[in-house]
Nucleic acid binder design. Structure first.
Length: 576
RNA sequence: CGGGACGUAGCGCAGCCUGGUAGCGCACUACCUUGGGGUGGUAGGGGUCGCAAGUUCAAAUCUUGUCGUUCCGACCA
C-alpha cells in the first residue's frame, strides 16, 4: 500500500478527550475516530488489525472444533422474555421498537439467540458436543463509556457457545476453550493470566477471565480490574470473586459485660475505634444496601470491606447500591428507631434482610450499633445480646497480604484488563427456554451449556496498552496492520525512490504486507509517522544507497542495521 | 443516575472576567525553500463561537434553559 493513497491522518497532538494511552495513540496514529460517546469508526489501519486478531481467533476456534456462524444484531424481545432477562438486564440493554411497535433490542450478547438456534437444530445426543461461535458487533449501553476501545458501547466480540449432554462433557468443552484462549492471546503477542471470576448477569457457576496485567505505577490506569494472585501456588482471582484467609487479629473486645455506652460523633469506624480505644477488628459494622429494591443489612468486621458483587450474588440480585440517607430514615421509622447511618445495628430492624460475613462469627465482647444515634452496645456476644443472623456468607473484599486459601502465602494484587472470559452456564438458558435433546436413554434433557467471549476490539486496545513507547505504538508482528514499511528519505532523489520501489515491489510479489512512504514529506515526518503507527519493521532508503546500503530497523527493539537492499528483502522474507 | 469541568475551523487552544471588525499553532491549497527525526517563507480557503430563549443600541463574552463531551463513583468483552 502506498502511504500517499492510504486513508490515514496522523495528528501532531493527542486528542484532548482521551485519558489512557491506547485511546490517545489509536486516535493520534489515525486508527480510530469517535462518532459518538463510546462509538468509534474503525479506519483502514484499525480494520486490518481487527482482521488480524479475528483471523487468529478463527483459526484457533476452528482448530478447537468450533464452527462459525453469524446471528442477528437486532433481536426480538420474545426470546429475552423467555429467558427472563428482558426484565432483569436493565438499561444496558438497548431497546427499540420497530414500525409495528414490536419490541426489539440490540444484541449485548447472544445466549438467547444461540439457545433458540440449538433447540431448533439439535434433537439428539448424537449431535453433541457442539460449539458454535460468531464474531460480531455487540451493543451495551454502558453507564460510563470511557478509555476508547477498552470500554465502548459498541464493540466487536467473539462469542462461542458449547452444548453438551452432561456435566463431564461441559468440563471437557470448557477445558478445550481455556486452552484455545491461552493460545489465541499468545499468538496475539499478549501475556494473559487466567483468573477465577464472578459469573455476573450472564449466570452460571464456574467462570474464568483472561486478564492482561498492566502496571499501576505508570500513567496507565486502564486496568479496571483488581486481580489477586498467589505467587506460591498460582491461585488468582478477580477481586469480585477472590477469597482469602485472614491473619490473626484481635476479635475479643475485652469488655466484661454488655453495656450501652455514649459514643458521640462516632459515625465512622475509625472515630468509634479511637473514641473507645479499641481496634476496628472488634467492631461489628452494619451497612444497609439496596439490592433490586430490597433492603439488606450486611454485617462485617469493622476493619474489612464488603465486596458488593459477592453480597449481591447471595441474594441473586442484579443491582446493588448502598442505601441513601432517606432510605435509612425510612427503615428506622418503620422499625421504631431514630438513628442515623453509623449507629445502625441488626437488632430490631424491620423489613430488612440480614446477612453476616463469616468474619463476624468469631467476634466476642464486641461493639455494635443499636439504632440509637451517638450510642453503641459494647461487650456484645452473639446469641446473648444480639441474635446471630441466620444467613452467613463470605461477602468480604480481599486485600493485599491476606493469606492464600490454597497455600497460606500472602496474596498480591495487580490491575488487569479483561480480554476474554469463559463460563459454565449449565442449564440456565436451556431450561428457561425449553431447549432440549433426546439422550441415549430416550429422555428429553436440557442442554448443558458453556459460553466463551473474547473482546476483539478490546484485545487490540489492550495490546497498545502493553506495547508502546514515547514514540508510538509497537504492534506485535502477528496483529500489525502491515509488517514492514519502506521509507525513501527524499522523494526528490531518483536513486532512492527507485531502490525503495524495487524493494516494495519484491516484497509485494512475495505477498508481504508492506507500505511504502511515497509521500512528498520530509524525512522527519515519515520517520515519526512510521514509529507512531507502529509498523514492526522499517527499511529506510537514504544517502547510503550510493554504497548500496539501506537501514533495517526493528521497531520493538530499536535495533538498526545497515545492510544491502537484497539482504533487507531477504530478512523480511525469512520472517514470514 | 449523583458530584466536578469543558463546548470557539478537521485537531490543539486563546479571546469571555471588564459586551463593540473572531484570533493563534497544527492540518489543508498554491508557489518558493529545505531534504535522515514533525524545515523556513509568501499567498490563500475554511467559523450560524453547541443549541434556544432573555438582557442590551450591540452578545463568543452577561442571565436562564437545553443538548453534547469529559473526569470521579455503581456496570462489563
Amino acid at each position: 500500500m502506498r502511504m500517499s493513497k492510504l486513508f490515514v491522518q496522523t495528528l501532531r497532538e493527542y486528542p484532548s478527550d482521551a485519558e489512557v494511552i491506547s485511546h490517545k495513540l489509536l486516535v493520534r496514529a489515525g486508527y480510530i475516530r469517535k462518532l459518538a460517546n463510546g462509538i468509534y469508526n474503525y479506519l483502514p489501519l484499525m480494520q486490518r488489525v481487527l482482521h488480524k486478531i479475528e483471523n487468529i481467533v478463527r483459526e484457533e476456534m476452528n482448530n478447537a472444533g468450533a464452527q462459525e456462524l453469524l446471528m442477528p444484531f437486532v433481536q426480538p424481545s420474545e426470546l429475552w422474555l423467555e429467558s427472563g432477562r428482558w426484565e432483569v438486564y436493565g438499561k444496558e440493554l438497548m431497546r427499540l421498537k420497530d414500525r409495528h411497535n414490536r419490541e426489539m433490542c440490540l444484541g449485548p450478547t447472544h445466549e438467547e439467540v444461540i439457545t433458540s438456534v440449538a433447540r431448533e437444530g439439535i434433537r439428539s445426543y448424537k449431535q453433541l458436543p457442539i460449539n458454535l461461535y460468531q464474531i460480531q458487533t455487540k451493543f451495551r449501553d454502558e453507564i460510563r463509556p470511557r478509555f476508547g476501545l477498552l470500554r465502548g458501547r459498541e464493540f466487536i466480540m467473539k462469542d462461542a457457545y458449547s452444548f453438551d449432554s452432561d456435566e463431564a462433557g461441559l468440563d471437557k468443552s470448557y477445558e478445550i476453550m481455556a486452552k484455545a484462549y491461552k493460545k489465541i492471546f499468545e499468538r496475539c503477542g499478549l501475556e494473559t493470566k487466567m483468573v477465577q471470576s464472578d459469573s455476573g448477569a450472564i449466570g452460571g457457576s464456574v467462570s474464568h477471565e483472561f486478564m492482561v496485567l498492566v502496571n499501576e505505577d505508570s500513567e496507565n490506569n486502564a486496568g479496571e480490574n483488581d486481580v489477586f494472585y498467589c505467587s506460591e501456588c498460582g491461585y488468582s482471582a478477580n477481586s469480585n470473586h477472590a477469597v482469602s484467609n485472614l491473619e490473626k487479629a484481635q476479635t475479643d473486645g475485652g469488655f466484661t459485660s454488655a453495656q450501652i455506652k455514649d459514643t458521640p460523633n462516632t459515625a465512622t469506624i475509625t472515630e468509634l475505634a479511637d473514641y473507645l480505644k479499641i481496634p476496628p477488628s472488634v467492631i461489628c459494622k452494619c451497612l444497609i444496601y439496596v439490592i433490586d429494591g430490597k433492603y439488606v443489612a450486611a454485617l462485617i468486621r469493622g476493619d474489612k470491606t464488603v465486596e458488593e458483587t459477592k453480597l449481591m450474588n447471595e441474594f441473586q440480585g442484579n443491582e446493588i447500591r448502598i442505601a441513601r440517607n432517606d432510605e435509612i430514615e425510612e427503615i428506622m421509622s418503620n422499625s421504631g428507631f431514630n438513628a442515623v447511618a453509623g449507629f445502625i445495628g441488626p437488632k430490631g430492624l424491620k423489613g430488612v434482610e440480614i446477612i453476616a460475613d463469616k468474619t463476624v462469627l468469631e467476634l466476642k465482647n464486641f461493639v455494635i450499633g443499636i439504632n440509637q444515634t451517638d450510642k453503641h452496645l459494647t461487650g456484645a456476644n452473639w446469641g446473648v445480646d444480639v441474635e446471630l443472623p441466620v444467613k452467613t456468607a463470605d461477602i468480604r473484599l480481599v486485600e493485599e497480604n491476606d493469606l492464600c486459601c490454597e497455600c497460606g502465602a500472602k496474596l498480591k494484587v495487580t490491575k488487569g484488563i479483561e480480554v476474554g472470559n469463559i463460563f459454565k452456564l449449565g442449564t440456565k438458558y436451556s431450561k428457561a427456554m425449553n431447549a432440549t435433546f433426546t439422550d441415549k436413554d430416550g429422555q428429553e434433557k436440557p442442554f448443558i451449556m458453556g459460553c466463551y467471549g473474547i473482546g476483539i476490539s478490546r484485545t487490540a486496545a489492550a495490546s497498545v496498552e502493553r506495547h508502546h513507547d514515547e514514540n508510538g505504538i509497537i504492534w506485535p508482528k502477528s496483529i500489525a496492520p502491515y509488517l514492514v514499511t519502506v521509507v525513501p528519505v527524499s522523494d526528490q532523489d531518483e536513486t532512492q525512490m527507485k531502490v525503495a520501489e524495487d524493494i516494495y515491489n519484491k516484497l509485494l510479489e512475495n505477498n508481504v504486507e508492506v507500505l511504502i512512504d511515497d509521500r512528498a514529506e520530509r524525512a522527519g515526518v515519515k520517520l515519526k509517522d512510521a514509529d507512531l503507527i507502529g509498523i514492526p519493521y522499517r527499511i529506510t532508503v537514504g544517502k547510503t544507497i550510493k554504497d548500496n546500503l539501506v537501514e533495517f530497523k526493528t521497531r520493538q527493539t530499536g535495533d538498526v542495521e545497515t545492510i544491502t537492499p537484497d539482504e533487507a528483502v531477504k530478512r523480511i522474507l525469512d520472517l514470514i
